[in-house]
């Protein structure tokens, strides 16, 4: 029978492994998946093309909301896959920090969408989306990489410019941001990672 003050060897070794893992997770950063950027960019470009077609132009808001959902899901899955490859658990410190940094900006965007839609001020939506998404990305640059902060700044800048654009050009601005910027940065990250991603 085991004495109350003895520690089983395997439990001690397992605790050591847990400690090593905790240290790695606490020190680690989330590597942004280039594939996630490329996929989200492709969805953004497709949404911009669909929303500018004469048949779907009156429904541009629905098109972009569906695109946002699809892009978020695809990006989330690809980021989770990347984190898993690095040996981080989905609820480990780096992924948790990333989610906590991203969530307030996205929540603000969702609330503002509802408020502006109810007020009938849909003209302000594209600028608001780009600006708040940019702010969310700037926050996530802390547990990720500097390039995410740069991407966020570009989004925020584009958002400010979009507020000044006429309504006819706002869909193009959304395409440039959610399509073009995502795609460009995704390709850049993939090149930097030199084929470490699938």
């Amino acid at each position: 029978m085991r004495q109350p003050h003895t520690v089983a060897l395997d439990s001690h070794a397992a605790a050591t492994l847990r400690y090593i893992r905790a240290c790695m997770e606490a020190a680690g950063t989330v590597a942004v998946s280039g594939s996630a950027g490329v996929t989200m960019g492709a969805v953004g470009l497709l949404a911009a093309a669909l929303a500018s077609s004469p048949a779907l132009r009156p429904h541009w808001l629905i098109v972009w909301l569906i695109a946002a959902t699809v892009a978020a899901l695809a990006g989330g899955v690809l980021m989770a896959r990347q984190a898993s490859r690095q040996g981080f658990t989905l609820f480990g410190a780096p992924v948790r920090k990333f989610s906590l940094c991203l969530a307030p900006g996205l929540f603000g965007g969702a609330v503002m969408t509802l408020v502006l839609w109810q007020a009938g001020d849909q003209r302000a939506l594209p600028g608001t989306w780009l600006l708040l998404y940019g702010c969310a990305l700037i926050s996530t640059s802390a547990p990720t990489t500097r390039i995410v902060g740069v991407l966020g700044s570009l989004f925020a800048l584009l958002g400010l410019v979009t507020f000044l654009l006429p309504e006819s050009l706002q869909n193009i601005a959304l395409g440039c941001g959610f399509g073009g910027l995502h795609l460009a940065v995704g390709i850049l990250i993939r090149r930097r990672s030199r084929g470490s991603e699938d």
């Binding site: 003050h5 003895t6 520690v7 439990s11 001690h12 605790a15 050591t16 847990r18 400690y19 905790a22 240290c23 606490a26 020190a27 680690g28 950063t29 410190a93 780096p94 920090k97 802390a142 547990p143 990720t144």
Partner: peptide, 18 residues
């Protein structure tokens, strides 16, 4: 990353006793 908030949680009792 890994600023002050990212302190490592320890498994102190097992380590101290072993």
């Amino acid at each position: 990353a890994a600023k002050t908030s990212a302190r490592v949680r320890t498994e102190a009792p097992a380590f101290r006793r072993a």
